[in-house]
Amino acid sequence: MAQNIFDQIAKKYDSPKQQALAKVIRQEIEKEWGNQSDKRVLDFGCGTGLISLPFAGKVKQLFLVDVSSEMTKITQEKITQQGLLNTTVLTADFLQDLPTFKVDTILVSLVLLHIPQTAEILQRLADMLTESGQLIIVDFDKNPLVYHERVHNGFEQTMLQQMLSKNFSKVHSRTFYEGDHLFMNQAATMFILHAEKNEMLKPLPLVN
């Protein structure tokens, strides 16, 4: 979906339906990611911050990133209103320019389906993680009822697990939610995937 579409819907994005769905997603994330009080967390494709802003008080530092300047403008307004001192919002396209800083955890909620270059963006996100970092993805299961020329019709969990195996040692996923009119006005299910990055290989001791 084009960036300008998100710019156009930004002011209407925080609907009751979106807020309710965000609450469901946050509950699942909290089951997966453990204690984040000393962690630097990045919300990739943050939109208006519905998913991650409520976590600001539970993490050391929170970065929110989106390609839509209208989305990040609204997110910044929320940050200012709430006086969140550990929270930074960025307008950026990670396929074009990747930040130089590292984070411990990356959240990718209902974002991957909008990016055609799946393998490339997963590699870039892996590059941003610390050695023992974790990646959490929430998205739709593959859905034959959905078609859009610019949007994936969901993902096969096993396919994503295989793609991530290059950079992550522990990968698991599960379907956790289903609903009517959930994805492109079709009945759909959502999954959560949790991946822990491979630690750098330590050299073997020399044997005399």
Rank of each mutant, 00 (worst) to 15 (best):
K78M: 07
P54H: 11
Q157E: 07
P203C: 05
V24A: 00
P144S: 11
L107V: 01
V171F: 09
E32D: 03
L85A: 15
G34Q: 08
L53W: 15
N198K: 12
S37E: 13
N35H: 04
D141N: 11
V67D: 04
D127Y: 07
A20S: 03
L113K: 03
F101N: 12
I106R: 07
L64S: 15
K166E: 11
I25Q: 00
H114R: 01
I51T: 14
K202R: 05
A187G: 04
H148F: 11
A56G: 13
V171E: 03
L206T: 04
T75I: 05
W33V: 05
F6L: 10
S165A: 12
T72H: 02
M184Q: 08
L64V: 11
N153Y: 02
M159H: 03
L42T: 14
V103S: 12
I5E: 15
D43H: 12
V207I: 13
Q19R: 08
H148N: 15
L84K: 08
V111F: 11
F63R: 12
L107S: 08
K12C: 06
F191G: 02
S169M: 03
M71S: 08
K23P: 00
H152S: 11
L85H: 10
L193W: 06
L112E: 06
T72D: 12
Q27P: 00
L182W: 00
P203G: 03
S68D: 04
I115M: 10
L90R: 11
Q157H: 00
A195C: 05
T91P: 09
T130N: 14
M71P: 07
L95Y: 06
T80G: 03
Q61A: 14
I5D: 14
M200L: 14
P144Y: 07
K17Y: 01
H181E: 12
A187K: 09
V24N: 00
G47F: 07
T100P: 09
Q157V: 06
L50M: 12
M159R: 03
T130M: 11
P205E: 05
E149H: 15
K142W: 05
L204V: 06
I106D: 08
R150T: 14
Q157P: 01
K23R: 02
Q161A: 13
L53R: 10
G45L: 10
N167I: 01
R40F: 09
F140I: 02
F168M: 04
T91F: 07
T175A: 01
E120G: 03
L135C: 06
L62E: 14
D7L: 11
L84C: 13
P54W: 05
S68P: 08
Q76A: 12
P54K: 12
D14A: 15
L135P: 04
Q61C: 13
L21P: 00
T48F: 11
T158D: 15
K102E: 14
F6C: 08
L201R: 02
T130I: 10
N86F: 04
N198P: 01
D38W: 00
L98Q: 13
D93C: 10
M1R: 09
